[in-house]
Simulated scan of single mutants.
Amino acid sequence: MKTITRRVATIATAGALGLGGLAIAAPALAGNGPFGFGSSSTASAGPNGMGPGYGMGYGGGACHRLSVTAEQGTLSEAQKPALALMAQKEKLSHDLYQAFAARYDAVVFDHIGVAETQHLSVVRTLLQRYGVTDPTADRPAGTFTDKATQATYDKLLAQGKQSLTAALAAAQQVERDDIAALRAASSGLTAPDVEQVYTTLIAASQRHLTAFTHWSTR
Rank of each mutant, 00 (worst) to 15 (best):
R139T: 02
A106Q: 13
A43S: 11
P192W: 06
S40P: 06
P81Y: 03
K161R: 15
Y104V: 06
A106E: 15
T149L: 10
P192K: 03
V174E: 04
Q88K: 00
T117A: 05
R218D: 08
A167Y: 04
A9F: 07
V108G: 02
A23M: 09
Q79M: 03
G33T: 07
C63E: 11
Q150P: 09
D193Y: 01
M1T: 12
D134S: 05
I179D: 06
R218H: 11
F37D: 10
G60Q: 12
Y153C: 09
F35G: 01
G61S: 13
A204N: 10
Q79V: 03
G60H: 10
F100N: 04
D105Y: 02
G59S: 09
G131H: 08
Q150L: 13
S44E: 12
I4R: 15
S121C: 08
N32I: 09
D95Y: 10
G51C: 15
P27L: 04
P52A: 15
V174H: 03
Y130P: 07
K147H: 12
V194M: 06
T145L: 15
V114H: 02
E175Q: 10
H64V: 01
R7I: 13
K80I: 04
E71G: 14
C63A: 13
A204V: 01
A23C: 01
I112K: 00
G142A: 07
G73H: 08
A181Q: 12
A141Q: 10
G188S: 09
A170R: 07
G59R: 00
I112Y: 06
L22S: 13
P135E: 01
A158C: 02
G51K: 04
T165K: 13
T213K: 12
R103D: 03
E90L: 07
A115P: 00
G73A: 10
A101H: 06
D95T: 10
G46R: 12
E77P: 00
V107F: 11
S41P: 00
P34G: 12
L164K: 08
F100V: 05
A99T: 11
L156G: 05
T74S: 14
E175P: 04
Q128I: 01
S67A: 15
A141H: 01
G188R: 07
L96H: 08
M1N: 11
P47A: 15
T133G: 04
K2M: 11
I179K: 07
K80V: 03
V107D: 10
A184I: 00
R218L: 15
M86G: 03
M56D: 13
D105R: 00
Y198L: 09
S121G: 08
A16D: 10
L83V: 02
